[in-house]
Design a binder for these strands. Structure first.
Lengths: 344, 344
DNA sequence: TTAGGGTACGTAAGCGCTTTCGCAAGCGCT
DNA sequence: AGCGCTTGCGAAAGCGCTTACGTACCCTAA
């Protein structure tokens, strides 16, 4: 494995600017104790020479760690890759590095990644994805992250609020409600839900929203079949098959995310079931292909890129005593996958 | 910005194992000059204590840099996110960290990212995406990368072979040929091509393949309209509009990647043009949604995840004097977006 | 027996940076 | 003029690691 090569060092800059190493360091870090003109000169020289600080030396010496660790379930899931896009964008602007690792939808593996990132001395940890189902693992993660924060680390969660840390949260409940209202207003009564496993923040909140909508119409979530598989296209396929088998009278399938909805659509197509004429389908998130599917998908748009940006912004802000919440807007995007409930 | 906190250090492990710092270091690095039993003891203690070396200190001291920089156009493009998935997978197995940055389809920006990664002292640089169109920028990048390699850095390219470095290359030419043959064998003669800008390896190779197929039928690429936009869904939309306007007799649109094909399909749908009855559509790459589109997309499958894996593997291998090439297989995947050319 | 050579380990010198500390110069005040 | 104070800067001590270099020790050969 390779070694980094000899490069421009801070001493070189300092020498060229006619100041000491310490002064150069202070000048570039924006610390005070340096006169404005000297600071300007150093910055000028640094720019001319194209100096970039060695992040390893910097971190080792007790400076800020310039790297942010981002934990996602799987980077090739569009939901996460869009979030990552936002994080990378902000990081680029700030001169930070983004390290991405996979939790693979596995709480214990995620915990391992958290530990690894901490051991690797990243400065900031961003965790995207649904929360823990295992309270023991959850508690352990909370403990690790809290210790990390006590040592000056920054943490933010994206789309979950289990960890006792700052979080960027879409209003899943309101989104779920909007979808529920939309289907009900189209006359759908036999709605089936394609959901991921229980215990996840995302899932429970969205379901709560659907429930709220139902209750306004004198019904409740408990009246509806909720099929629990996974937040993937395959999960959607499996859920759809099960719904068609066990609840053939269904006129609308509410998938709790777009990946599942895509799987549902594919399955309905395979069964030659017309969407939305026979069955309407809705998703959640509005991943970018949603608009280009056939039929295009009615869904709730979450600003995923923006969520990534916000999360890093949040983590970059000075820490507050209590965990902060930033909520993001959501928009019901009505497209071609929903229509009036079939008569009868 | 946060500081990394005090953690378990190598001295702690060394003390606990009753050896000196140097010996502990050697033992964990697998260097010789340490008796087997001592080495075992150190490794044992290290494992018990959960020791993870501080990568900053390690790199600074002249050890291997544990981080690999991956440059992609945009992480939320499925082609790149699947590649990234492969890289992250291998990196995870090897205990390496992956830093992702965006080139934004801009050669100069990509060059800047290369410089930045080098300045950040990453050990390995992986570059995905199409090559340079500007020879000056290309030459400059080549120079930087070559200097980086001379200092012990490792580099591999994914899906391009411009840079004079090791590369993982899908057989774009054969893939293009397969698509061409497929359309021709279905009787299509009025084929239009939705392409990205010229000068990119990917583009030229795929086009060359199409040309080869055409020539076997006594025709040539130059007979066909080639519309050049961008490798994105929007690019596909624009290309399709232009094709419909300027070449209404077209019976098949060959898009040079799936994103474009998705845009093409969306546009045809908007124009209520039946696919594949009136116009057949093919893409390239087989991103995962391709199978779930309606109609599902005929395309050439590239093993993107595998390409990411291979690239990192390649970079991890000892460097050879001449740039190595690894080619990947490709498979024509015939789905519902292609059918016989309409009569007449 | 002793010189020579290998082996196993410890000592210590850095890697490039941040930061504490100390010193000199400049200021206002008595 | 003398005192303390602030301000601007340099010297030097590490951060945790790798890696020469040095030094015991043991083995073999003469």
């Amino acid at each position: 494995m390779p070694k980094p090569g000899p490069r421009l060092r801070l001493v070189d800059v300092a020498e060229r600017a006619g100041v000491s190493l310490a002064t150069a360091s202070r000048a570039l870090a924006g610390r005070d104790g340096v006169s404005a003109e000297v600071a300007d000169r150093v910055r000028q020289v640094s720019r001319e020479l194209g100096y970039v600080a060695n992040p390893y030396a910097r971190t080792l010496a007790g400076g800020a760690s310039p790297t942010v660790g981002l934990i996602v379930h799987q980077i090739d899931d569009p939901y996460f890759s869009e979030i990552a896009g936002g994080v990378i964008q902000v990081a680029g602007e700030q001169g930070l590095l983004v390290q991405i690792c996979h939790s693979g939808r596995n709480p214990e593996h995620e915990l391992r990644q958290v530990r690894h990132l901490i051991a690797q001395r990243v400065g900031i940890i961003l965790i995207a994805g649904s929360g823990y189902t295992d309270p023991a693992v959850e508690a352990e993660a909370r403990r690790e992250l809290s210790a990390f924060q006590d040592l000056g680390g920054r943490v933010a969660a994206i789309g979950r609020h289990h960890l006792g840390v700052d979080a960027v949260l879409p209003d899943n409940e309101a989104g779920g409600r909007a979808l529920g209202e939309h289907l009900l207003s189209l006359g759908h009564r036999r709605i089936a839900i394609a959901s991921a496993a229980g215990g996840l923040t995302t899932v429970e909140d969205r379901l709560a929203g659907v429930d709220a909508a139902l209750r306004r119409h004198g019904r409740a979530l408990t009246d509806l079949p909720v099929v629990r598989t996974e937040f993937t296209r395959d999960g959607g396929r499996v859920a759809a098959e099960r719904i068609l088998r066990d609840h053939p009278e269904t006129t609308a399938i509410l998938a709790l995310n777009d990946s599942m909805a895509i799987g549902v659509l594919a399955t309905l197509r395979a069964h030659r079931i017309a969407v939305p004429e026979r069955i309407s389908v809705v998703g959640f998130n509005d991943v970018s292909v949603a608009a280009d599917l056939a039929p295009s998908l009615t869904t709730v748009r979450l600003p995923m890129t923006e969520m990534g940006r916000m999360a890093l912004d949040l983590a970059l802000k000075p820490r507050s005593k209590r965990p902060r919440r930033r909520s993001t807007g959501h928009t019901l995007v009505v497209r071609d996958s929903t229509g009036p409930a079939p008569a009868g």
